[in-house]
Design a protein around this nucleic acid. Structure first.
Lengths: 150, 150
DNA sequence: GCACGATAGTTGACGAGTCAACTATCTAGT
DNA sequence: ACTAGATAGTTGACTCGTCAACTATCGTGC
């Protein structure tokens, strides 16, 4: 019996998750890029820095949240520093860690981007009921921490 | 008023979607790579070829489904051809289009990968009720086709 | 039946992230 | 106090996908 003829609902569901995420990511990312001039990944980083304790986010912490490796974050922050959106702040307690912090321009750009992004989401999700979005959110929250091993 | 103090539930929900997808993708992709020796993206391509009409998937069609550009698909198929998992089949009706088709090795690898992937998903989603997964699936299906413009 | 614009795929130059090796710093065990 | 091992971040070499330019083919209107 070949894969063609077998039921693999979960495989399809996961494929659906992939397609849904990719579709939204592309549309929202394009809009952000076009209207605010910021790539979606940068937006997510700016957002997470702004939400961090005292506005200071250690590199490694960002890496987890945006699903990059340490090296990847180093390079992205390099570019964002070059663009004057972010600055590196050494940590006094632990001299190995380097924080990322928003510059005024970074904060300003983020505020602009949030408005655009939020508005886009409202339009994309206009047809979704509050209940449906609520269910989605709780399921996503559980999915985020679901682990294969252990 | 700064972004820090404003409610943007949808922005957070989308962030959640991103984190959930990334987390699952990484775990499942690592497992596939480790146990079957195939990258997750290749798996998705193999799967979609196998599901295509007569097992023949036009390049452009794959591009849409796995969220790549045309050039990206060309290069990925190049590598998969080099690995003997896939072959290019010219279309007789329209000589511009090139199909991708599974080789016997490709089909064999796919079958193996599906079992592993499906099993992984069962374990990751063990705590999710059938109802919850059903709701998730219908919501994802709607999300996949949600459009910002129009 | 031909010229035009649209479409499918490929390619060169490039941008962005990964991996592994390395430095610097911290922490625990003795 | 000192060493061994863990941890945070950076860097070089490389892979992968993008973008834009290009080729080849198709379809339409005249």
């Amino acid at each position: 019996m070949s894969a063609l003829t077998t039921d693999h609902d979960l495989v399809s569901t996961f494929g659906l998750l992939m397609e849904a995420y990719n579709s939204l990511e592309r549309q929202l990312g394009d809009s952000l890029e076009r209207e605010v001039g910021v790539p979606h990944t940068w937006f997510e980083v700016l957002l997470r820095i702004s939400r961090a304790e005292s506005g200071l986010a250690p590199m490694g912490c960002l890496a987890e949240q945006v699903a990059l490796t340490g090296g990847g974050v180093t390079r992205m922050i390099d570019r964002m520093v070059a663009a004057d959106l972010v600055e590196r702040v050494p940590c006094a307690k632990d001299r190995r860690v380097v924080y990322a912090a928003l510059t005024p321009q970074g904060r300003e750009l983020l505020d602009k981007a949030i408005l655009v992004h939020d508005d886009n989401l409202r339009r994309i999700l206009a047809d979704f009921s509050a209940v449906e979005l609520d269910q989605l959110e709780t399921t996503l929250r559980r999915l985020r921490t679901a682990r294969l091993a252990g």
